[in-house]
Computed example of a mutant assay.
Amino acid sequence: MIKSMTGYGRGECTGGNVVFSVEIRSVNYRFLETVVRMPRLYAALEDLVKKSVAEKVARGRVDVFVSVETEDSKNKTIKVDKDLALAYYNSLKDLGEILGAPEQQIQLIDIARFPDVVVLEEGDPDMEEMAKALQTATEMALEQLVNMRREEGKRLRADLYSRIEKLEGFWMQINDRAPNVVVEYKEKLQARIKELLESVEVDESRLAAEVAFFADRSNITEELVRLQSHFAQFKAALDSAEPIGRKMDFLVQEMNREVNTIGAKANDLTISNLVIVAKSELEKIREQVQNIE
């Protein structure tokens, strides 16, 4: 089943002392382009995100937004420099003796306030655990993204299938009309000659040669056969499980080429009008195909 290139997904997972939130948006693009925006501190994990995207998405511009929240209560320790605290205490004690202040005035809280006596330290982050958490959050977001692209693909398939059926209807009308073009041309030419040369008998051999030349020049059998083949390939592509957007884009170009040639060769007002309508339908198909992965 075909997939759209437009979608959105979100995932969240905790690893180590951080919570990763991943949002993924995708839009139309000829190739796969993944842009990751995340805090510089975690830039080493960017390739992991891009690899996960490449495993699930074949085409489109994919924007990945990674936000990180730190759980402050985790992975933090309080360190006391005992030697430094004792040095401060002894210094205060000596100062007290010099000033005649009693030793009891030295409070523990005063010593703790001196620089570097009590320090809050964060432990080294567990990059392996964080990488697993980020990958999990990314895969959750990608699952939602792919599901949305698949659902949009169903709608695109229904629309494109109905439009191809319309084109097949135009094809049948052109195919039915084509044989009559030469017959009508012969009758009009014969009537015109008689009108201009009432007293002169029509040279049937020259008339036949002129009609044969017109029939050869206006023959659209090959174009109709190729067009029918393109319709069949396009329908088959609509049910393909593989990324098929580029092939469908190519088929639309080829259909447009055949329709243009039919319009140029047919030399018939009815067929020309059908060609105009068919080209309008092909343009709508082309626009929709741009959304397919």
Rank of each mutant, 00 (worst) to 15 (best):
W171F: 09
I78C: 02
L92Q: 09
R157S: 13
T138F: 03
I98V: 10
L120A: 03
E46T: 14
K50R: 04
I98R: 15
P125S: 06
T77I: 04
S162Q: 13
K154Q: 13
K74L: 10
K51T: 07
D81H: 08
K82A: 09
Y88H: 11
V49T: 07
R150C: 15
L48S: 14
Q144R: 03
V80F: 05
E151Q: 15
N175R: 12
A101R: 11
G96L: 09
R155F: 04
L84I: 13
T70Y: 15
A54R: 03
K93R: 12
R113C: 12
L142W: 00
V119D: 08
D94F: 07
D159F: 10
K132A: 03
I78P: 02
P125N: 02
M127Y: 07
L92N: 06
L92R: 04
V117C: 10
R61S: 02
E139L: 03
R59N: 02
W171A: 04
D72E: 14
I164W: 01
L134N: 08
E122G: 05
K76G: 07
D159L: 13
E122F: 02
E152F: 11
V118Y: 15
G153V: 14
T138Q: 03
K154V: 15
M127G: 00
L45H: 03
L95C: 09
E97R: 10
G96I: 04
Q144V: 01
Q104K: 11
G169F: 05
L120P: 06
R155K: 11
E129M: 05
Y161T: 15
G169P: 01
N180V: 12
E121M: 08
D63T: 13
Q135R: 10
V80E: 09
R163D: 04
D72H: 11
D94P: 07
G60T: 05
S91G: 12
P125E: 06
I78T: 11
Q104M: 05
R155T: 04
V117H: 13
A44I: 11
A137F: 04
V117R: 09
D83K: 15
E128G: 04
M172D: 15
G100N: 02
D72R: 14
L45F: 04
E122W: 03
L134T: 02
A112D: 08
D159E: 10
A137T: 05
K154Y: 07
I164C: 09
Q107L: 10
E152C: 08
R155E: 05
D126L: 14
E143A: 10
K56W: 00
T70V: 06
E152D: 15
R150N: 13
T138D: 01
A87M: 09
I174V: 08
A112N: 06
S73C: 09
I164L: 15
A43G: 03
D83S: 15
K79I: 14
A158G: 01
A44T: 11
A87R: 08
E128H: 01
A58E: 03
N90M: 10
L108T: 07
